[in-house]
Computed example of a mutant assay.
Amino acid sequence: MLTSPTRRRRAATILSLTAVLALGATMAEARPGGGSGGMGSRGSRTYAPPAATTTAPSTAAPIQRSQTQPGMNNPGMNPAAAQRPRFGGGFMAGLLGAGLLGALLGGGFFGGLGGIASFIGLMLQVGLLVLLVAFAVRWFRRRQGTPAAAGHARSTLDGNGPGGSMNLGGGGAPLGGMGRGPAAVQPVQARPVQIGPGDFQSFEIALNGVQEAYGREDVASLRNLATPEMAGYFIEELRANEAKGVVNRISDVKLLQGDLSESWGEGNAEYATVAMRYAIKDVTLDRRTNRVVETGEPEAVELWTFVRERGGRWILSAIQQGR
Rank of each mutant, 00 (worst) to 15 (best):
D252P: 00
E237I: 13
P182S: 10
F140K: 02
P75F: 08
G161T: 10
P62K: 05
P192G: 04
G112H: 02
L96R: 00
F306Y: 11
D199L: 05
T295E: 09
P70C: 07
Q257K: 12
G35P: 02
G115Q: 01
E204Q: 15
T46Q: 04
I14V: 12
T146R: 12
G163L: 07
G151R: 13
I14F: 05
S261G: 12
S66N: 03
S221W: 02
A206Y: 01
G43P: 03
G258F: 04
D282M: 03
R310H: 14
R223M: 11
A173S: 13
N248V: 15
E266C: 13
A30D: 03
A243D: 10
V137D: 12
A213T: 07
I63L: 07
A19P: 04
S251L: 03
G181Y: 11
A153V: 03
L225S: 08
L124M: 08
I116D: 00
L131Q: 09
M27S: 07
L225V: 15
G90S: 09
P182V: 15
P192K: 01
L285F: 15
P70A: 10
R216E: 12
P187Q: 08
A48E: 07
S16M: 10
G108W: 00
L238Q: 14
I280V: 15
R249C: 02
G108E: 00
L23W: 05
Q144A: 12
W139I: 14
M166N: 09
V188E: 06
I235N: 09
G121H: 00
R7P: 01
A134T: 14
V137G: 00
L113A: 01
Y233Q: 05
S58I: 05
F234M: 10
P57L: 03
A150R: 01
N167S: 13
P182F: 12
Y233V: 15
A80P: 02
E294S: 15
T59C: 01
F140C: 00
F119N: 00
R86E: 13
V292F: 08
W304R: 04
G265H: 02
S165N: 08
P192M: 04
E266T: 12
L225M: 13
E302V: 13
P79W: 06
P298Q: 05
R86D: 11
V283N: 07
P147K: 02
V210T: 07
A22M: 10
S263F: 01
L15I: 11
R180I: 15
S317N: 09
M230L: 13
G196D: 14
M39F: 14
A134F: 08
A243T: 15
A25W: 10
S317Q: 07
G258D: 09
V210L: 04
R7W: 08
R291S: 14
G164Q: 08
G88L: 06
G38A: 09
M230R: 02
A12Q: 07
L207D: 03
T18N: 06
P75G: 07
A279L: 09
K244F: 03
Y47R: 09
P197T: 14
Q144R: 05
N167Q: 13
T54W: 04
A30R: 04
M27C: 08
A220W: 06
L21F: 10
V20E: 06
M39Y: 11
S261Q: 05
A136V: 15
G196I: 14
E302L: 06
E204V: 15
P70K: 06
A136E: 14
G179Y: 13
E237N: 10
D199P: 08
